[in-house]
């Protein structure tokens, strides 16, 4: 019901309703500017929530199926305990594969911390075993007990300890981003309501004349609604494009990780197309409400 009327009111080239309200230069520019700024900010809020959403998904996927067994033992027992632990792991339900990391791999893991020249062989570093779970998962408590019996130096780290807070943080960030978009929309609605109220008050005489010659409220409201909706649409389009360019210009080196991942990937760019029409819709609803409320309050 609302959508067709919304569209006909806006799109039918009825310049007459527009003309009956005098043009207003300054406030028009302010509305355009504010809508643009809001859209610009919304682009970043959107980028933040999409990027953190991606991050949370990725962390969730990558970490959920991997665990590590760490074996700390005196040098002479290391090989024996590793063997024992691998045997236990291979006979545990819910574990797809278990593999001891080679020295080269361990060195690569340590390189970021100690530099590439570290003599791993001569250091008492623990042996790591990479464990890949099946979808069903395994019983961590049972596995720990069996490991402690067979290989006392083995410690199971199923990653949940540090995975959970990370995913929680990412999800929280995503929620904050979405909430910010709502706030931006609300602020824009409030701003446009104020602007529309000011416009209606400034044009009280025009409204009186229109009323005297038999204009219905819908006609009077349309003049204002159309104007503010088109302004918000235009402002938001400019703001969205500006925000898009700013996101594109951000240095993007995948290796730095989260910060530079702030952007849009693939189909996510589509969401930017949604911003201006949503801004227009918000402006339409805000002005429509303001206009009908002001007009309804007249005798």
């Amino acid at each position: 019901m609302r959508a067709p009327r919304f569209l006909t009111d806006l799109l039918v080239a009825d310049g007459s309703a527009d003309r009956v309200v005098p043009p207003s230069g300054f406030t028009a520019h302010l509305t355009l500017f504010s809508a643009g700024v809001m859209a610009f900010l919304a682009v970043f809020a959107l980028a933040l929530s999409l990027a953190t959403g991606r991050l949370a998904d990725r962390w969730g996927d990558e970490l959920a199926h991997a665990s590590t067994v760490r074996i700390s033992a005196p040098d002479d027992q290391m090989a024996v305990q590793t063997e024992a632990a691998l045997r236990v792991l291979q006979t545990t339900d819910g574990i797809e594969s278990a593999r001891a990391l080679s020295e080269d791999e361990q060195r690569a893991l340590l390189a970021p911390w100690f530099g590439p020249e570290v003599p791993v062989e001569s250091l008492p570093i623990p042996q790591l075993i990479e464990v890949i779970e099946s979808d069903a998962g395994y019983d961590a408590a049972g596995l720990r007990m069996r490991l402690s019996a067979e290989a006392p130096g083995a410690v199971l780290d199923d990653h949940t300890r540090w995975r959970r807070p990370l995913i929680a943080a990412a999800n929280r960030l995503r929620a904050l981003g979405l909430f910010s978009i709502l706030l931006i929309g609300g602020a824009m609605a409030a701003m446009i309501t104020l602007a529309a109220n000011a416009a209606l008050a400034a044009n009280a005489k025009v409204i009186e004349v229109l009323r005297l010659v038999g204009a219905q409220d819908r006609y009077i409201a349309r003049a204002f609604v159309r104007r503010f909706t088109l302004r918000a649409l235009a402002g938001a389009t400019v703001g969205t494009v500006a925000g898009m360019i700013a996101v594109l210009l951000m240095p993007s080196q995948a290796e730095v990780g989260f910060l530079t991942g702030l952007g849009f990937a693939g189909a996510e760019w589509f969401w930017l197309l949604v911003l201006p029409p949503v801004a227009g819709l918000v402006a339409y609803l805000a002005t429509q409400r303001a206009a009908l409320r002001v007009l309804g309050a007249l005798s």
């Binding site: 009323r211 005297l212 010659v213 038999g214 204009a215 219905q216 409220d217 819908r218 007009l295 309804g296 007249l298």
Partner: peptide
């Protein structure tokens, strides 16, 4: 209000 607006179209003021 709209009824009154319609009536105004039949009343010149």
């Amino acid at each position: 209000r709209d009824d009154i607006a319609m009536a105004r179209r039949r009343i010149g003021v």
